[in-house]
């Protein structure tokens, strides 16, 4: 299949002008239409067996996150324990995909998680603003990788993107990717600062062209964080990118996803936009903290038939 949008010239990253030509040649996104499509998918009714599957799948896709100035070793250890065994009373409950922390806490998370299968993700590149010299950002990344981070969540330079310095953004992603070594790179677009869906689509393609393994909506520090329409635009981007290049890129909405109902809506959207290939923790993640306990409570409800309340799930 040859998609018009996907005819990528070989010299696409040769200059700002070449990148601009390509990114601005992508089909536009009609905001009203994208919002309507996201809202329509949000009305899907997920019941019984489908709900059971979706809850467990959502749990397994969570990047369980703590990104606070007040984070301590104790907090990170507790979060790791929670991520490995979200429901200590039920061995069938899946573990989360990863624990997401600041770089200086990677070592402690790695030590806690060991060979549990739960990965360590670290934000880097002077998260959340990204305002630092490139050498500082790269050092940030290398330190996290050296301490054992399996995944790096970088932020793009939104200032450069918004002023049209696409090549600068591209080069930065390329260098961060190189600094990651074997670690997977998630590129945070901070869509709340990009403002338009056209920008979200362009930033998605830019991040994919530059070698990101995942594209991620938000830091969680800017409002709005993840929204359904933004995630829709990003899912369309990864779908089209794979058709153009054969390379599959993951998607991670993060921030503001708090309830089981929210998570169901995202999974429905993945299902009906990108399809089965993205319905695994390898290709779709949800960055969240409070969501996990809501999923666990709904999981209890499906098992026992009644809602047992917040004291029946563990806090971290």
């Amino acid at each position: 299949m040859t998609l018009t949008a996907a005819a990528i010239p070989t010299d696409v990253a040769s200059s700002d002008a070449a990148l601009r030509r390509f990114l601005h040649g992508l089909p536009g996104v009609d905001q009203v239409g994208a919002d309507a499509r996201a809202a329509a998918l949000g009305t899907r009714s997920i019941k019984t067996t489908a709900k059971r599957w979706a809850i467990d799948t959502a749990i397994s896709m969570i990047d369980l996150t703590t990104l606070e100035g007040q984070d301590t070793h104790g907090k990170v250890k507790a979060l790791c324990a929670k991520g490995v065994r979200p429901d200590p009373t039920d061995a069938t409950c899946p573990r989360v995909a990863a624990i997401c922390v600041y770089p200086d806490l990677v070592a402690i998370a790695k030590e806690q998680l060991g060979d549990s299968g739960v990965k360590v993700a670290s934000v880097a590149t002077n998260f959340p603003s990204g305002r630092a010299a490139l050498s500082v950002k790269l050092a940030d990344v290398r330190a996290a990788v050296a301490d054992g981070a399996d995944e790096i969540d970088m932020v793009i330079d939104r200032g450069a993107f918004l002023s049209g310095r696409y090549l600068e953004v591209y080069d930065e992603i390329v260098q961060v990717k190189a600094a990651c070594g074997v670690a997977h790179l998630k590129v945070i677009l901070e869509t709340g600062e990009l403002a338009t869906y056209d920008n979200v689509r362009r930033a998605s393609w830019l991040a994919m062209l530059a070698g990101g393994d995942f594209i991620k909506t938000s830091t969680g520090k800017v409002s709005p964080a993840a929204t359904l329409p933004v995630t829709l635009v990003m899912l369309e981007a990864v779908r089209d990118f794979r058709e153009a290049t054969g390379r599959q890129i993951g998607v991670k909405p993060a921030g503001g996803i708090r309830t089981t109902k929210d998570a169901m809506r995202y999974l429905v959207m993945v299902n009906e936009t990108a399809g089965d290939d993205w319905l695994t923790p390898d290709w779709f993640r949800i960055g969240a903290s409070g969501l996990l306990n809501d999923l666990l409570q709904q999981r209890h409800k499906l098992t026992t038939g009644h809602y047992d309340g917040p004291d029946y799930v563990t806090i971290d």
Binding site: R44, S45, I46, K47, T48, T49, A50, K51, W53, A54, T57, L267, V268, N271, E272, G275, D276, D277, L279
Partner: peptide, 11 residues
């Protein structure tokens, strides 16, 4: 749409 996520009847 895929086969993994099979919506149960929701009448």
């Amino acid at each position: 749409m895929g086969k993994l996520f099979d919506y149960a009847p929701a009448p």
